[in-house]
Design a protein around this nucleic acid. Structure first.
Lengths: 221, 221
DNA sequence: GCCGGTTAGGTGACAATGTCACTGACAATC
DNA sequence: GATTGTCAGTGACATTGTCACCTAACCGGC
């Protein structure tokens, strides 16, 4: 049973008639997930559509030797289509979603999803748009990985992760997993950034000293 | 005006009631595209959904320095959701689709698409499934590019391109564009393959001598 | 045939990135 | 302060990407 009216949070549901929203509030249920917990993964493929009510989920892929790369992040108000994608395609995959913050998820069972996407244009468009965003995200990842330099990519990612902040709390290994590279590579580049007075480092913490300088590197490519 | 009944070709339409299919045959129109022509691209974003009736389309992405990588291929019976994805997301992208063979495309205008995806479950599921396949394809590309060795990737790709054949007609540059790498790299690896008696080379042509050996390399990772 | 232009492919030097093995630094805990 | 685990630094080396330049094969015309 649901207390909060989550339907207001999502573009695809906020515009629906009140009676539909009430029906939805009944058929979906709300779950809490704690920071660091897995939302979905290769062993844990849900048969429902996820809506992220609050928090942030990091979706990443892991190679068979254990290296990791972050594919994209799901923010509040967005839906997670990857799991449904894999469901539909009935294919193995090795992406997983990790809650980066405490997360509130709305789980919509497949029957309700089907009915809704057939009856409500707004909802269907919302879902299509979600798919589209993910496709575009992945195009960007492919472009970065295939053609980008890592100093550029690292500068970009640092600025994104530390947007509006003075520092980024992350180990070199964390950053390596963001970009799908090795820790040593991150160490090298960060040391270079430090020599150029763009950042300061301490254990698990990177402090900005010259964001403009980093932006110059990030925008270079 | 359409002569052929293309609706039989697609999972999402073949099962529809006859009267719906007849309506579809009227609202969509069929286009021919010649080998090598661009089906869509950054400068040419159509506002319709594509169905590939016959032929094959290669979807690739180009870096800003001109290097290219093949993302996936669209085969007959499949639909092309990337263009609609980009339409919906209203974002720039730099993927393009090239006809690899002479191609017959069914173009379904957006209004018809909307009506159909709301009224017909089979059609909607077909479209969702198409999105899913593309997402999965891209996950695979990311995995390959981020974590794969190129000798492995090249062996794989050669076997795919030459499936059931004795040879592959492609220049080193073509293969480089398949994998998103540089021609010199392909040359090196192919020379290595040749030294190991896995292939023979001549201008624009690679002949298999030991497919099992290639498979061993391809499956290694 | 020959000639000249175009394209495909080869090569070596070097730069960038990834891998490996090992080391030391730091923090938490007992 | 000794122990333990995590984090980061380092040098050697392998792989991959870049650059400049070269040669070989093909193609069209004559």
């Amino acid at each position: 049973m649901t207390i909060l009216d989550w339907t207001a949070r999502f573009k695809g549901t906020a515009e629906l008639p009140m009676e539909v929203r009430e029906r939805l509030n009944k058929s979906a249920h709300v779950t809490q997930i704690k920071t660091g917990d897995q939302v979905f993964g290769p062993m844990n493929i849900p048969d429902s559509l996820f809506f992220l009510y609050e928090g942030r989920i990091r979706v990443s892929q892991t190679s068979d030797v254990g290296r990791e790369i972050v594919l994209y992040r799901i923010e509040a108000g967005d839906s997670c289509v990857l799991t449904t994608a894999c469901m539909l395609a009935e294919e193995a995959y090795n992406a997983e979603g990790i809650a980066e913050t405490d997360v509130t998820v709305v789980v919509l069972p497949k029957p309700a999803f089907d009915r809704l996407s057939s009856e409500e244009d707004a909802f269907r468009n919302f879902v299509f748009a979600a798919y589209s965003r993910r496709l575009i995200d992945l195009l960007r990842v492919v472009d970065d990985v295939a053609f980008g330099r890592i100093d550029v990519r690292l500068a970009e990612r640092l600025l994104t992760l530390g947007d509006g902040l003075k520092e980024v709390r992350a180990t070199h290994q964390d950053l390596a997993s963001e970009l799908g590279t090795a820790r040593e590579v991150i160490s090298r580049v960060l040391n270079d950034f430090q020599k150029r007075d763009l950042i300061e480092q301490s254990r698990g913490l990177i402090t900005f000293k010259d964001k403009a300088g980093l932006r110059a590197i990030a925008n270079f490519a």
